[in-house]
Design a protein around this nucleic acid. Sequence first.
DNA 1: TGGTTTCGTCCGACCATTTGGTAGGTCACC
DNA 2: GGTGACCTACCAAATGGTCGGACGAAACCA
Lengths: 205, 205
Amino acid sequence: MASFPKPPTLNDDRRAVDIYRRAAVILRERGFDATSMGDIADAVDLTKGGLYYYIKGKQALLFAIMCFALEQVENQVLKPALEVDDAETRVARWVEGHTILMLDDPAPMMVLYNELEALKPEHRLRVDERLNVSTNTLRDAIEVLVAERSTLDVDIATGAIRTLVEGVANWSGGVRADHDAIVRQVTRMAMDALLGHTEAARAVA
Amino acid sequence: MASFPKPPTLNDDRRAVDIYRRAAVILRERGFDATSMGDIADAVDLTKGGLYYYIKGKQALLFAIMCFALEQVENQVLKPALEVDDAETRVARWVEGHTILMLDDPAPMMVLYNELEALKPEHRLRVDERLNVSTNTLRDAIEVLVAERSTLDVDIATGAIRTLVEGVANWSGGVRADHDAIVRQVTRMAMDALLGHTEAARAVA
DNA sequence: TGGTTTCGTCCGACCATTTGGTAGGTCACC
DNA sequence: GGTGACCTACCAAATGGTCGGACGAAACCA
């Protein structure tokens, strides 16, 4: 597990990381603006005053959680995807890695995707920049994949795959299947969506 | 276009509907909790006091917008889908109708899907109930479709199709293609995801 | 060893601002 | 002169954030 950005002065930051993690959970559940610092303090068993010993402010907390999520994306999605050159397996790895992430640690990921507009403009730019690297990696791979084996529009295909994967955490809770099965089937659906050609699918097109 | 629920007393409700529509736009952009009644009043060219002539409260406004969105779903997604018996065309119609809705009038739809937890419990139950009708319609059709022509888990497939469609409004803005092309291609991708069988897709499964 | 200073951790009380919502009045028009 | 449509001024509550200090354990010193 990667670490959260360090609070001001703290040699042993286990408590800080724990605070960030627990804050991510409650922020994911209630949403950033609907969650008060008092709520967060309760969730981490502190008073508001005590919480501010670890946190510089509400914005900084949100930004830190998002940076943590971005780190995970870069390490567990982008890196494995870029290790292969074949466009098809690269897309598959991107989808697979992302789905695993959404299932294993959904809270920071959902905060990242759902609370972007709650960021102050400066932070927003930084986060968007790193998010675009991930999106563009997917887009580029889909572009070569689609150019030779499909008639899909690249932007449409990219958007669809992105939201397909980002939505996993919204419904995975109500599913009996285990994580492995979800990852396999989501990945298969994504690849079929990009490359599949059934007569039925053609009929509606 | 269906009408918004009527405000207290109002014989000519064009202004009221306009207020609901404009409020939906700004609520979609900034999120419910991040939008103050003052912001909404500005967006509809009123003062806060004037706004309350039409609106009973912030919660009531949110609930009204969601009811409007639900009406649209029932009329433009559920009704066409239930007109056919064949499971495959029923799923296709559900996806198609939903995608059209997300493109034609995204604001109330996004408010409906993104602000559920901002509802007071009583309203929440009512909305969830109507949403479940839509989801179950999709799920039941996918169930028979998948039982005979795929090995997908019904819940996984349903969740994936739902979030695929719900996410359209998030990326459709940055796409050059026109709405018709988006609808056709999203529908095709959805059906391919459910029924497609490419060798590549099997390889990752 | 016993006292005292230091330091990291955390609390309670407080503050300025913003929030959703209300009350009373104004003004045009029938 | 009554009524619908709207505004100004205001309120109580909640919010993000601050500050001085309390408490305990370690470090230091005798």
